[in-house]
């Protein structure tokens, strides 16, 4: 860690676990849930958010001293929207099918509360390098949860990972299916994502009692 001081490293590592944007800060849940039925979509979404947050945090941090605070929300929205348009156009050009699957959820990165939340809470008060690390760290924390949810939903719901069958063939009854295993179609429907995230929160808070909320 010659590159990063301990304080800077924490900016990246904290959001991965004990200060996770989804399970602890409760930010950016909207887009996290709808697109996690497949692992591939989750990974692409995570990468898009990492890109938008890393660059967005730097831009806001650069502008923090010249931006009148009254119109900062609109300025932030425009910065994010411009970055999201770039992501959307790249996806449409190089991964058209995937951009169809993600449909409006790429656009909804704009109103992803993680991004606005970190702009307000961090980038407005910190330098460029630290803002960049904070952006990457929080986006990674978001991505980790997204990929976890996507992994379980695709594995249990369709028996595949990245579209490749891993549990055998459900029609020819090979692999696990030969002993009577069935795909759980329940995992594919949207509300299952909420339950999976609920269970992740449960596991995380049982492991770290300090995170338990006062009811």
């Amino acid at each position: 860690m010659a590159l990063l001081s301990k304080k800077d490293a924490n900016l990246i590592l904290d959001p991965l676990a004990d200060n996770n944007p989804i399970t602890i800060q409760v930010l950016g849940i909207c887009s996290a849930l709808a697109i996690t039925a497949e692992l591939k979509a989750s990974v692409v979404m995570a990468i898009s958010v990492i890109f938008v947050m890393g660059i967005g945090n730097v831009v806001i941090s650069l502008m923090r001293n010249i931006m009148p605070s009254k119109i900062r929300i609109i300025v932030q929205l425009v910065v994010i929207a411009a970055l999201v348009i770039v992501v959307d156009q790249v996806l449409k050009a190089y991964a058209y099918d995937l951009s169809k699957t993600l449909s409006v959820f790429v656009g909804l990165i704009i109103t992803n509360c993680i991004i606005m939340g970190r702009f307000e809470a961090f980038a407005l008060g910190n330098g460029i390098w630290r803002s960049f690390l904070d952006g990457i760290g929080n986006a990674l924390g978001y991505g980790v949860i997204l990929i976890m949810v996507g992994f379980f939903r695709e594995l249990l719901g369709s028996g595949t990972l990245f579209g490749i069958p891993v549990l055998g063939d459900p029609i020819a009854k090979t692999g696990l299916y030969s002993i009577g295993y069935e795909n759980n179609g329940f995992m594919i429907i949207p509300p299952a994502a909420l339950i999976v995230v609920g269970v992740i929160i449960w596991v995380q808070r049982s492991r770290n009692r300090a995170l338990i909320e006062e009811a």
Binding site: I189, P191, I195, G198, I201, W202, I212, E214, A215
Partner: peptide
């Protein structure tokens, strides 16, 4: 259960309501 209090249980209830709405 203590670790589920607040956020966790809200998620799970919302999930169950979502299944109802399906």
């Amino acid at each position: 259960p203590a670790p589920l209090r607040g956020l966790g249980i809200t998620f799970i209830i919302t999930g169950l309501m979502g299944i109802g709405f399906q």
